[in-house]
Computed example of a mutant assay.
Amino acid sequence: MATNNPTKKRIQALKAEYDALRKGKESLLVMVDEAEIPEAVYNSNAIENSTLTLKETEKILLDMEVSRDVSVREVFEAKNLARVVEYIRIKSQEIELNKEMILSLHQMLIGGIDDKIAGRFRAKGEYVRVGTHVAPAPEHVESMVDAILLEYSSDLNSYFLDKIAKFHLDFETIHPFNDGNGRIGRAIINFQFQRLGFSRIIVRDREKKDYYQAFGDYREKKNTKTMEKILVLGLMESFHKRIAYFKGETIITLSDYSKKHKLSAPAVSNAARRQKIPAFRERGVWKIPENFEY
């Protein structure tokens, strides 16, 4: 499948507005990106069944005590993934997507958690399964990763978002590592977006059902449409948030916006989820510029 032309035009228009508004506001963009790190970390870890809440993740990243005993592993997972997210923000314009970079990200993510498997692909005898999907034998992993990297870099005709979606589907199907595949895969999505000058996205735990469905659709029918839609909506939401901050908009919750304008809350929420309005989430709460005319 491929992203349709109206969607491409919307993304192109948002990108143009984002590029025009960000000039001279790089420090603001850094602040917005950094403030978003706990939310990005929380969601990616939650997809992998971490028990940490968003508030606990925020406290851990600030080196504050949390109100319950949490495992040392979950503390490391939060801190390590935050390092990966920040590293990608800083380095995405400097380095290419390649095998060495992926292994380096994995070392950063798993180091201190399980050093025996950090920074390397699965070796002989190391098999993994995700639900009903048994990943390819370890003997094939490195050559398969080489193949999808080559396909991604040499495809000069496909739409950038479609390429990123397919790469993610292929990467997770290979499942090249013993642990951390999902978190590294989602980190690579953002490396690819930021490498191309786009803003990063958050694949959210609340949409985990659709996210997992995307892999089922790909493995059963070679259909990439579900993953493309997830990335499209995530990118639009990310643009809407940053554009609102660049413009200095007064930002209110979607709930307050609906009440103020006497609108149907379910209808407005549906429009937000479909990105038909410039709404975005902060700490899981939908927000929108106060002066937006619905």
Rank of each mutant, 00 (worst) to 15 (best):
I117F: 06
F239W: 08
K99Q: 04
I277C: 04
F167Y: 14
A78Q: 02
P38F: 08
M236C: 14
I189H: 00
Y152P: 12
S67F: 04
E58W: 00
P6C: 05
A20C: 02
W286D: 00
D210L: 13
M1D: 05
V285W: 11
I102F: 02
I117P: 07
V66M: 03
L233K: 13
L54H: 04
A16P: 03
K287M: 11
A135M: 13
M227W: 07
I252V: 15
Y245W: 13
M108L: 12
S67R: 05
K221R: 06
P278D: 12
Q12D: 09
R204A: 03
K221C: 02
E36Q: 15
G125C: 04
G182Y: 14
E96A: 09
L161T: 13
S158L: 10
K222E: 11
I113G: 06
E36I: 12
I117R: 06
Q275R: 15
K229C: 09
Y218G: 04
L62E: 15
A214L: 05
K15P: 03
S44V: 06
L54P: 04
N98K: 01
Y152K: 13
R283F: 06
N157L: 15
F191W: 01
K59V: 12
P278K: 09
Y245D: 04
G131K: 12
T57F: 15
K15E: 07
L161W: 02
K259F: 04
A279V: 00
V128R: 03
Q192S: 08
F246E: 01
T173C: 15
S67W: 01
R22E: 01
A135C: 13
V232Q: 05
D205K: 10
F292P: 01
E48S: 13
L97C: 03
R129N: 02
R281P: 07
L29M: 11
L103K: 00
